Deep mutational scan, measured.
Amino acid sequence: QAPETKIVDKSRVACDGGEGALGHPRVWLQIPEDTGWVECPYCDCKYVLKGSKADAL
């Protein structure tokens, strides 16, 4: 199944896999201003900063 994409309001987000005990260790991710998105290294969930150029795609 394809990784999930989430639109977020802040450039710093936490990801834990979203499945409680079945998820992964919580990691904090920083969305770079130049790209407007970041992917979780564990679950490949893509976080897109709302209003960024990546959000316009």
Rank of each mutant, 00 (worst) to 15 (best):
V13Y: 04
Y47L: 09
V8W: 05
T35V: 12
T5S: 08
H24V: 04
S52H: 04
E4M: 15
E33P: 11
P41L: 04
Y42L: 15
L29C: 06
P41T: 04
I31W: 02
I31T: 02
R12F: 13
K46N: 07
K50R: 14
A21E: 11
D44A: 15
E33M: 09
K46A: 01
P32G: 04
S11W: 09
V8L: 03
G51Q: 04
D44H: 15
I7G: 01
D44S: 15
T5E: 05
G51K: 01
V8E: 02
P41R: 05
K50I: 07
K6N: 08
A14N: 02
R12Q: 11
C15D: 00
T5R: 05
K50E: 11
G51P: 03
K10E: 11
P3S: 13
K50P: 08
E4P: 14
Q30L: 13
E39L: 14
Y47T: 03
V13K: 02
L22S: 11
T35C: 06
R26A: 01
E4I: 15
R12H: 07
A14T: 07
V8C: 06
K6G: 05
S11T: 12
D55W: 00
G18M: 14
I31M: 02
L22N: 11
L22E: 09
W28H: 00
I7V: 11
V48S: 00
A2H: 14
G36Y: 03
L49W: 02
D34G: 07
K10S: 13
C15N: 00
D44L: 15
A21K: 10
L57Q: 12
A14S: 09
V38M: 06
Y47R: 01
P41V: 05
L22C: 01
E39V: 14
C15Q: 00
A2L: 14
V8S: 06
K6T: 12
T5A: 12
G23R: 14
V8M: 02
P3T: 12
D9P: 05
W37H: 01
P32T: 04
I31A: 01
V48C: 12
L57F: 13
A54S: 06
L22Q: 10
V27I: 12
G18E: 06
H24A: 05
R12N: 09
Y42M: 14
R12V: 13
V13G: 02
E19F: 09
E4Q: 15
V27P: 02
K53A: 10
Y47F: 15
V27Q: 01
G23Q: 13
G20E: 05
P25R: 11
L22A: 11
G17S: 03
I7R: 08
G18L: 07
E33G: 07
K6A: 05
A54T: 05
W37G: 05
W28Q: 00
Q1R: 14
Q30K: 08
C40D: 08
G51H: 04
A21W: 08
E4D: 13
D55G: 03
A14G: 04
D44T: 14
P41E: 02
Q1C: 15
E33L: 13
K46P: 01
K10N: 11
Q1S: 13
K10G: 08
G51D: 07
G36Q: 04
V13W: 08
P32Q: 04
K6F: 11
D16K: 08
P25H: 06
W37K: 03
R12W: 14
Y47W: 08
T5G: 07
V38C: 00
G20T: 05
P3K: 14
D16T: 13
K10V: 13
L29R: 02
V48Q: 05
R12I: 14
G23A: 15
W28A: 00
A14H: 08
A2F: 13
E33S: 06
K53T: 09
G18H: 13
G18Y: 06
K6S: 08
L57Y: 09
K46T: 06
T5D: 05
G23K: 14
Q1P: 11
W28E: 00
G17P: 04
L22G: 08
E39Q: 15
A14F: 14
A56M: 13
G36S: 04
Y42V: 12
E4C: 15
Q30E: 11
L57R: 08
C15Y: 00
H24M: 03
S52D: 08
G51E: 07
L49E: 14
Q1N: 12
A54F: 03
A56C: 13
T35L: 12
D9V: 11
P41F: 06
L57M: 12
V13Q: 02
K6R: 12
A21H: 08
A54Y: 04
E19M: 08
C40V: 09
A56E: 12
K50S: 09
E39S: 13
G20M: 04
P41A: 05
C40G: 07
P32F: 03
D9F: 14
A21Q: 10
P32L: 07
I31V: 01
C40L: 09
C43V: 01
S11Q: 09
Y42K: 13
G20F: 07
P41H: 06
C40Q: 08
G51I: 03
W28G: 00
A56Y: 13
T35S: 08
G18Q: 08
D34F: 07
E4F: 15
R26L: 10
P3Y: 13
W37L: 04
G51N: 05
V13D: 01
L22I: 04
R12P: 15
S52C: 13
E4W: 15
D16M: 07
V48F: 06
K53Y: 08
D55A: 04
P32N: 07
C40F: 12
P32R: 06
K53I: 12
L49A: 08
C40T: 08
R26M: 08
K6Y: 11
D9Y: 14
W28Y: 09
G18N: 07
A54L: 06
G23D: 04
W37V: 06
V27F: 05
V27A: 03
R26N: 01
G20L: 05
G51R: 01
E19C: 15
C43A: 00
R26F: 05
Q1A: 11
V27N: 01
I31Q: 01
E19A: 13
Y47D: 12
A56D: 12
C15I: 00
D16Q: 09
V48Y: 07
G17N: 03
D55E: 08
P3H: 15
L49N: 09
P25C: 08
D9S: 12
K53F: 08
K53C: 12
I31G: 03
L49I: 07
G23C: 00
C43S: 01
Q1V: 13
D9I: 10
D44F: 15
R26C: 07
K10R: 11
K53P: 12
Y42I: 14
A2E: 11
Y42C: 11
E39W: 14
A21C: 00
Q30I: 13
D55P: 04
S11R: 12
E19I: 12
D44Y: 15
G36M: 03
V27T: 05
L22F: 12
Q1L: 13
V8Y: 04
T35D: 06
K50A: 11
R26D: 00
E33A: 10
L49T: 13
A2Y: 13
I7N: 01
C43Y: 02
L29F: 03
A56G: 10
P3I: 11
D16F: 12
L29I: 05
Y42R: 12
P25S: 08
D55N: 01
P32H: 09
D9A: 10
V13P: 02
A56H: 14
V13S: 01
K46E: 08
S11I: 10
H24Y: 05
V48T: 01
W28M: 03
R26E: 01
I31D: 02
I31K: 01
S11C: 09
Y42T: 05
D44G: 15
E39C: 07
C40N: 07
P3F: 13
P32Y: 05
L29V: 02
P32C: 09
D55F: 00
D16W: 08
V38L: 04
T35M: 08
D55Y: 00
C15E: 00
S52G: 13
D34N: 08
R12G: 05
P32A: 06
D9M: 12
A21F: 08
H24P: 02
E33W: 10
P3G: 12
V48R: 02
E19N: 10
E33I: 11
Y42F: 12
V38S: 01
